[in-house]
Amino acid sequence: MSKSFQRGLIVGKFCPLHKGHEYLIAQASEACADLLLISYTKPEFPLCGPLERERWLALSFPHIQRLVIDDAILQRLCIERGIADIPEIPHNDAAEEMHRQFVGWLCLVLLETTVDAVFTSEDYGDGFAAVLTQCFQQHDPGLPVVTHIKLDQQRITVPVSGTRVRLDPHANRAFLSAHVYASFVKKICLLGAESSGKTTLAAALAQHLQTLWVPEYGRELWVAKEGKLQFEDMEAIAVRQLASEDHLGPQADQWLVCDTSPLTTLLYSLAMFQRAADALQQMANTQYDCIILCDIDIPLIQDGTRQDHAFRLHQQAWYVQQLRQRALPYLLVRGNVEERLSQVMGYLAGK
């Protein structure tokens, strides 16, 4: 099928990428043989950094060319391409002309390309297209005029804006693809020695928050292999644990409760094999929004899979030492499950 334009352009903050953006991009893609997406913002918005924006766009539109930058990324790309005169990204409040000239420079100098159409949902697109036409024709007078295509200006097809989503991404999750919404789900990590009530609290907390929890895969594998784990299993456990978090995150609601983390797997690898794979040590650095450490103020229940009281003491002390060494804030909870749940909810209220 023939396309109306050879190469189109969409420029946006995508903070975050919402279904209005996706509609605009899909419509432009239908009209163009090739499409270029450029994303920048200054200042950046929380939880919408360039790596997140690149990931969202890559997952939603893997076959469309993307340029997602901040000043550091722009500098690196320019150095790689041998560009000496490196501009700074204009501030969001800068004059429209600065932004238009900057995008023209990105196309001509950094990407060495031009476009024949620009797609927006705003009136400013006419002036934007005119400046791009001027920039490109100064480079090559034979290039065509850049056409502005305005789509869904009244936000009728997708009634949403980035500002609205940023104010409350949870209330507006219907306007976000699942992989985008997952970036706004906060992860709660539960740690604790054997028989410290961690799994019981994880289930209770998820129920109270009306969300999901991620079971401890290492325990499942331990049971399945009757305790005969190999060194290679340690890294695989951590990989599977994080994959489960990634799988359930888009389905959660505001919070995702994680019954353990790769830090626990690191502990068992060191205890069982006196060493740990480099990849496991890296995964043990996985960040969580809240860390809850369950105290060992409840009796050890020996179910046939747990070690002795001495190991339990060692394990709990190791967690405390690691959390302090890594400068990770955490909440130590004590008492029965209702008391612990109350302590956690009070802690989360401040997050």
Rank of each mutant, 00 (worst) to 15 (best):
A236D: 12
L132I: 09
P169W: 08
K187F: 00
A277M: 04
T265Y: 00
Q281I: 13
V333R: 04
Q138T: 14
T211D: 01
A238W: 01
H179L: 11
Q282H: 07
D295C: 04
L190S: 05
A28P: 00
A236F: 07
L190V: 01
Q65V: 02
D140G: 00
G127T: 09
V214N: 00
V320D: 05
T147I: 05
P159D: 04
D126K: 10
R164A: 11
I149D: 01
L270E: 14
I69R: 00
L270W: 02
P43A: 15
K225G: 05
I38E: 02
Q302T: 05
E44F: 14
I83L: 08
L267F: 15
P159M: 08
A31L: 15
Q241N: 14
K187N: 01
L221Q: 10
L106V: 13
A204T: 06
D71F: 04
V11W: 15
S2H: 06
H148T: 08
Q307H: 11
L77Y: 05
T199I: 09
V320N: 06
C290P: 00
Q101S: 13
L229Q: 13
M1E: 07
L201E: 09
E226C: 07
D246S: 12
E97T: 15
Q315Y: 07
G125E: 01
Q6I: 12
P141L: 04
I86P: 06
A171Y: 00
R155M: 02
Y319R: 03
M1L: 09
D116W: 06
S4I: 09
R76Y: 12
M1C: 03
M283E: 02
R306N: 08
S2R: 07
Y40Q: 05
L151T: 07
F184P: 02
L293I: 11
Q274S: 15
E112G: 08
I69V: 14
P169Y: 06
I237Y: 00
I291H: 10
L67D: 02
R324H: 12
A58H: 03
F184H: 07
S269R: 09
R340K: 13
